[in-house]
Amino acid sequence: MMMERRVVGLLLSVMILSLLDGTSKASQINDITCGQAGKLTLPCLPFLQGITTIQPSASCCSGAKSVAQRASSTQNRRALCQCFKKISQTININPDRSKLLPKLCNVNLPFDLDPKIDCNSIPF
C-alpha cells in the first residue's frame, strides 16, 4: 500500500512537471523553465513528502543548488518562487521538511515551498 502511494505520487509529480514545462515557456528562470527547475528538484520529492529519511539525497541537493544558482535576479527568484508554489499546491509537501531542505543542502533559498507563500512580498 505504501509503495503504491509512492509510485502514484511520483507519477503525479512527473505529470505536473510536464504540464508546467509545457505552459511556462514564456516565464523563464534565467535560461531554465519552471518545468526544468521542477525536474531538477524531483529527487527532493521523497524527502519533502516525508517518505525517506531525515536527510535529502545527494541528487536532491545537487538539483536544488543548480536551480538556485541559475536564478540570480529578483525577477528570476520570484518566478522560481511562483513555480514551486504551484507545485507545492498540488503535491503534499511536509512544511517542516521544506524549511529544512535549504539548510541541509546548503542552498540559499529565501523562501519555503509553501502553497500559501506570497512570492511578491519576499525581499530578494
Rank of each mutant, 00 (worst) to 15 (best):
L20T: 06
L80C: 09
F111R: 02
D112W: 02
S98I: 11
L104S: 03
P95C: 12
P43L: 03
L19R: 12
P110Q: 14
V8P: 00
S57H: 04
L48H: 02
N76D: 15
G38V: 03
I117W: 07
P110E: 13
F111K: 02
R77D: 00
A68Q: 05
K65F: 05
S72W: 03
A64T: 06
I87C: 02
T90A: 14
S121F: 06
Q89V: 09
T41W: 00
A71S: 10
D21K: 00
K25F: 06
M2G: 13
D96N: 15
A58Q: 12
P56K: 06
S59E: 13
N76Q: 14
D31S: 10
P56R: 09
L104F: 12
I51L: 10
A37L: 04
L48N: 06
N120D: 15
T23P: 01
A68I: 01
C61R: 00
S66L: 12
K25H: 12
Q69D: 14
V14E: 01
P43Y: 05
M2C: 14
R70S: 09
P95F: 11
N30E: 09
A64W: 08
R77F: 00
G38Q: 02
N108D: 04
S121D: 12
L100M: 12
D21M: 04
Q82H: 15
C61I: 07
S73D: 09
L109S: 11
R70T: 05
K86F: 11
C44S: 05
A71F: 02
R5T: 05
G35W: 00
Q75I: 13
L101Y: 13
G22M: 08
G38C: 01
K25D: 10
P95V: 12
T33H: 00
L48D: 00
N30G: 15
V67Y: 06
T23K: 08
G63S: 08
S62Y: 10
F111P: 07
S57C: 10
R97L: 12
D31A: 06
Q69M: 12
D31H: 13
I16F: 03
G50Y: 09
S121W: 05
I32N: 07
V107D: 01
G63D: 02
R97A: 07
Q82E: 15
I91L: 15
S27Y: 05
L42M: 11
L48Y: 01
P102Q: 00
R97E: 03
P102E: 06
D21L: 01
V14W: 04
L19T: 12
N92W: 11
R70E: 13
S59Q: 14
V14Y: 00
L10H: 01
Q69A: 15
L20R: 02
T90Q: 15
D114Y: 11
I29L: 01
A58D: 10
K39S: 09
T23C: 09
C83T: 07
S88H: 10
V7I: 14
L10M: 11
F111Y: 07
N30Y: 04
R5P: 00
K39V: 08
R78W: 07
T23S: 11
T90R: 03
V107C: 12
L40T: 02
K25T: 13
G22W: 07
V7R: 07
M2I: 13
F84C: 13
T41V: 09
L10P: 00
L113H: 05
R70F: 06
L45V: 08
L80Q: 13
L45K: 02
M3Q: 14
R78Y: 07
S57D: 02
Q82N: 15
L80P: 05
S27L: 04
V67G: 00
N106A: 10
